[in-house]
Amino acid sequence: MSAVHVVKEIYIYPIKSLASISCQKALAEEMGFENDRRWMLIDAENQLITQRENPILSQFYPQISDGKITITFKDYKHEFSTTAHLEDSIEANVWEDKSEVFEVDPETSKWFSERLGFQCKLVKIIKIGDRKHESSKLKETFNVSLADGYPYLLIGSESIDFLNEKLENKITVLRFRPNIVITSKNAHEEDDFDTFAIGEVQFKNIKPCGRCIMVNNDPQKSIIKKEPLKTLSKYRVVNNSVLFGTNIVSLNSGIISVGDTVIF
């Protein structure tokens, strides 16, 4: 079974709800991959800002090099240090979770505010424990980043292929914002994974991921459409939730790479 499952793609999303960065390898940490969703945008009430209400965020493209993050949006660019943050903390919400975060700097917040057309701040979570998320399934609390719920999302290649067979207009797996894409034999078999190893890291499956309207955002055009949720709702609904991909946590830190075999 394990020979079938090989890491095909790895992605991080440094700033929550912005575009991804494709990686050949990544350092897995308790809160997620290094630099994955350690930053997010918040509004004047310290509430998170996402593609759900602002689909244009999908056209902000980050890159990381030499300790700096560069954001490109249309003809605009902005750069800031990965270590930059102000001293005073802010209590922000990531859905039901309280998170202690720090504004990166006023110049960066101003740049995003001008691009988006409303007042916002770019903030950073800087240490483990600044946000905790309770798993209702496991009755266990996890230290997490600024991701929606869990540190990692894994998707099998057959799951996206099976969906695309049903869609008139094909989509890429990036609609579902995975961290790890593996080759697989059967659609959605990742839902039933237990514990497994990739590279230096042991992972544990928590639960399949319930999806929201954000997967209907065409990231190249920033237009919310009806698909793929319309089609998924015909065959992937469990307890009123549309499931696609599965939420996992790491049990130790280490490097995983594209091409690594998944060991069960």
Rank of each mutant, 00 (worst) to 15 (best):
A44P: 00
F33T: 04
I213G: 10
W95P: 04
K74S: 15
L167F: 09
D66L: 10
S109P: 03
T231A: 06
S136N: 12
I155Y: 04
T72L: 13
N239E: 12
S253F: 04
L146W: 04
Y61W: 09
F80I: 00
V7R: 07
F33P: 04
E45F: 08
M1R: 14
F203Y: 01
C209Q: 06
L86S: 12
F112N: 05
C120I: 11
M1L: 12
N93G: 00
R37I: 01
M40R: 12
F112H: 02
P62W: 03
E158L: 08
L174Y: 14
K225H: 11
E190F: 14
K234H: 14
K110Q: 15
E107D: 13
F60Q: 05
S184L: 07
N216Q: 06
L48P: 01
R177C: 01
F142W: 05
L251W: 08
F73I: 03
T141M: 01
I125H: 04
M214G: 10
D218S: 14
N164L: 02
K121Y: 10
C212V: 09
V104W: 01
F264Y: 15
E158H: 12
I12G: 12
H85Y: 05
A44F: 06
R52W: 07
S17F: 04
T50C: 04
D66M: 08
Q119M: 12
V242A: 03
I256Q: 07
Y152Q: 05
V237K: 09
L41C: 11
D88N: 15
S159P: 03
L243C: 13
I180N: 03
D88P: 08
D260W: 14
V173H: 00
N93E: 02
L174D: 14
I180D: 04
I263E: 12
P228R: 03
I255C: 07
P14A: 02
K127Q: 11
K226W: 09
F118S: 00
I56A: 05
V7I: 11
I206Q: 08
E91K: 13
D194I: 15
V101W: 00
V123W: 00
L174C: 12
V242H: 04
D75A: 14
R38F: 02
D105L: 00
L232Q: 02
V258Y: 06
C209N: 06
G149R: 08
A197Q: 13
G245W: 10
S159E: 04
T172V: 05
E158C: 11
E189I: 07
P178Q: 11
T246A: 13
V238L: 03
K68I: 05
M40P: 14
Y152M: 07
D194S: 15
S136Y: 13
F142P: 02
K170W: 08
I263N: 13
D260F: 14
E87R: 11
T172M: 07
G156L: 09
H85T: 02
I12P: 11
K127W: 06
T261R: 08
R38Y: 02
K234Q: 15
V215F: 02
F118W: 03
D75C: 08
G259D: 10
R177S: 00
F33G: 05
D191S: 08
W95K: 05
P178K: 10
I255Y: 14
L116T: 00
D194Y: 15
H188G: 02
F102L: 01
N93P: 00
S241H: 09
I21R: 10
S233F: 05
D88K: 15
T183E: 11
L48S: 11
N179P: 10
